[in-house]
Amino acid sequence: MSQPLFQIRDLEILQTTGDKKSLLAPLNLEIQKQEVFGVIGPSGAGKSSFLKCLNRLIDLSAGLSVRGDIKFEGQSIYQGSIDADTLRVQIGMLFQQPVIFPKSILANVLFAVKHLALAPKSEWHDIAQRALTQAALWDEVKDRLSQPAQQLSVGQQQRLCLARTLATGCEVLLMDEPTSALDPNSTEAIEQLILELKQTHSIVIVTHNINQAQRVCDRLGFIGLRDGMGTLLAQGTLRELMTQRENVAEIDAYLRTTESIRLDT
C-alpha cells in the first residue's frame, strides 16, 4: 500500500493565552494521495484551524500552539527539522476570500515565482500562461495581463489566487471554503477546476456546503463541536457519513441545518 499523503497523529490545537483550553481535541486521520478530502462541520468547530495545521500556517496565529504531529509524505512536519517555508511552497493554500495583491494580474500570478526565485526570468511568461490556463483564466485575461488585478470580478480573483498557487508547482492544495464568497457561476467554475486538478493534485477542502462536498469530494471528515472542542466525529464517504447520522447526534443536528440533499446512487 502506498504511503498516505498526510498521516495525522494526536493533533491538538491549544490556546496559549486566557483559559488555555483546547480548540481541537486529539485528532487522528489519514489523507491519501490523489484524493479530494473534504472537511465539513458547523462553523466555529475549528475546520479552518485544522486546515492551517497541514501547512503550518497556524504558526502565524498568535496565541495558538499545536501538539501531536503530522507526517507529510512520511516526513514529520512538527517534530522533525523541516523548514516551514519550504513546506508551504509544496502545499498551496486558497483562502475563503480571494487575496489579491495590489499589483497587476501578471505580478500576482508570478508573485511567489519571483520572490522565491523558483525559475529564471526567461521562463516566467510560460509559467504564468500555464498556471492561468490550469486555472481556466487565461482566455479571459491574456490581453490585459498588466492591468491591476483588483479590476477582476471576485470569481476571477479567486481563480487568479489558484493560478498563483499553481505557479509554484505545488502538488497539494488546501482550500478553505473557496467558494463561500462567490456567486453560483463562479462556484461551478471552481468546482469544475477541482475535479480537473484532482488528476494531478491532492486536495483538502473545507466546505460548509454538503452539496459541494457531494460533488467534489472522494472522502469526508466531519469535525463537530463536542464538549466545546472541535472533534473529528466521523470520516468516510458521504454515504458512510449519512449512515452515521443515527449514532452521532452532532452530525444529525448539522445535516438538519444545511440544505436537504439528494443522494444519487
Binding site: 517555508d85 483562502f95 520572490h115 489566487c161
Partner: peptide, 8 residues
C-alpha cells in the same frame, strides 16, 4: 497570510 501561505 497569503504571502506566507505561498511559502515566502
Amino acid at each position: 497570510e497569503a504571502a506566507r501561505g505561498l511559502g515566502l
